[in-house]
Design a protein around this nucleic acid. Structure first.
Lengths: 146, 146
DNA sequence: TATTGTTATACTCTATAACTATA
DNA sequence: TATAGTTATAGAGTATAACAATA
């Protein structure tokens, strides 16, 4: 590589990286667990698990949907025993949503399936290639958090 | 790293990589061009551009939707001057859909915006970090194509 | 008769507006 | 009066079933 390639390569790196990341994400998304939950519902569950109990309003804000939409999602999830709704301890207007044990199991299974595909295909790479991905992963994650 | 890490690390690498790729993809997706086209419509256009002229049935199969759904998408895109519908040369039942120049310009702009964000944030990385991503990109792409 | 595409119709998801209950 | 949540209603998007045209 030429010395100036580090500045020079940025647009090309961006292009190559964007395409590769989007393609791989699409492939991984396709491996979702076979359940009749929608992506919206799965995403809401994952958000609740990640952040702990939230009010419907907070969850709607996290998931970038309007409160009435989240009401509907929460109703479905509650009916299937995947979320609990408990009254807020100090404010009678509010409700707290939290994931049930069944939901945790479902999320674990969802992740396991997606990773199973990836583990299988990582095994086909060389040790050097895996090392390259291992080095890249935290940088990708940092980019995503920016 | 220990000598056995290359086998040992696979589940952990898979987990770290999956999370990073999905997060970054979500972030990149959020940078979509401000147009009132839906993701379905944009995706159909991109598919047509990538593969060249296709019949509605072929396009529906590529995009994993049913033919009537694609009819609807194609109708909207045709009304906006983003796709052309021409009769199939040899089979009168079929139609060929293709992107117009306006659609190509729109897709170029869409990609440019997504890359703009990435270029900006890549510039904040060190040269070593960019080199690590440059090495990883083709491997990620190969994984996605598997 | 089989196939391609479209039209008819229904269901899901999400949104805005109106309503209820609590602060 | 302001706020949290829900209910009422409407607009996309996609699906299945039925139809029209061509092979």
């Amino acid at each position: 590589m030429s010395p100036r390639s580090s500045t020079h390569a940025d647009p090309e790196l961006a292009s190559a990286l964007r395409i590769a990341v989007m393609r791989l994400a699409r492939r991984l998304r396709a491996e979702r667990v076979q359940t009749d939950l929608t992506l919206t519902q799965l995403s809401a569950l994952a958000c609740l698990e990640r952040h702990g109990p939230l009010t419907p309003g907070e969850l709607a804000a996290h998931e970038k949907v309007q409160p009435p939409s989240m009401t509907r999602v929460a109703t479905v999830l509650a009916a299937r025993g995947l979320v609990d709704r408990v009254p807020h301890p100090s404010d009678g207007r509010q409700v707290l949503l939290s994931v049930t044990a069944a939901a945790r199991a479902l999320l674990v299974e969802d992740r396991r399936r997606r990773e199973a595909w990836l583990v299988e295909h990582l095994a086909a790479l060389s040790a050097d290639e895996r090392a390259a991905l291992l080095a890249a992963a935290p940088i990708l994650d940092r980019l995503a958090g920016a």
